[in-house]
């Protein structure tokens, strides 16, 4: 049943968001700290568990895959609701600060990508260019 996949996804998000809010209030900040990340881990672990015992049916997967496939369209909608006018008319301080932060962060990606977690020597998977 497709709804089982959608429900598993929704349940993961709800639990993750709840934990993220709890972490936020423990730290004294009014924000969801890492909720989406926790939800993602819950989804990965639960689907792996189901798959290992052979109980992850194709229809269940389809309920999750559909929302994964809707990700880019949803991001396009998100882009269409950004305060772009605010960004464009933000004034020189904001523009220079934003540009500099992005440029320096980009430059540091290849530097920090070399950091290895101690004890793990296997190389990371590299994605081939999409056709």
């Amino acid at each position: 049943m497709i709804i089982l996949g959608v429900a598993l996804l929704s349940g993961s998000l709800l639990i993750g968001t709840f934990i993220g809010n709890l972490v936020g209030s423990l730290l004294g900040v009014d924000a969801n700290v890492g909720g989406v990340g926790i939800a993602m881990i819950l989804l990965i672990l639960s689907t792996n568990l189901l798959a290992r015992s052979g109980r992850l049916r194709p229809e269940t997967s389809a309920g999750i895959s559909f929302w994964s496939g809707m990700y880019i369209p949803i991001v396009v909608a998100m882009a269409a609701t950004q305060n772009v006018v605010g960004a464009v008319t933000a004034g020189p301080v904001a523009v220079v600060a934003g540009v500099a932060a992005v440029a320096v962060s980009f430059l540091l990606v290849p530097v920090l990508a070399r950091v290895k977690t101690p004890g793990i020597d296997e190389p990371v998977e590299v994605f081939a260019e999409e056709a």
């Binding site: 996804l9 929704s10 909720g35 989804l43 990700y71 101690p118």
Partner: peptide, 27 residues
């Protein structure tokens, strides 16, 4: 494009992602 559906779709993209790869890059 609001927070609720964006988060739902982001979590869904985690389906098929590798937990091992995430652990490898933890530090």
């Amino acid at each position: 494009g609001g927070g609720m559906l964006v988060n739902l779709a982001i979590v869904a993209t985690g389906f098929g992602a590798s937990f091992e790869e995430m652990k490898k890059s933890g530090l």
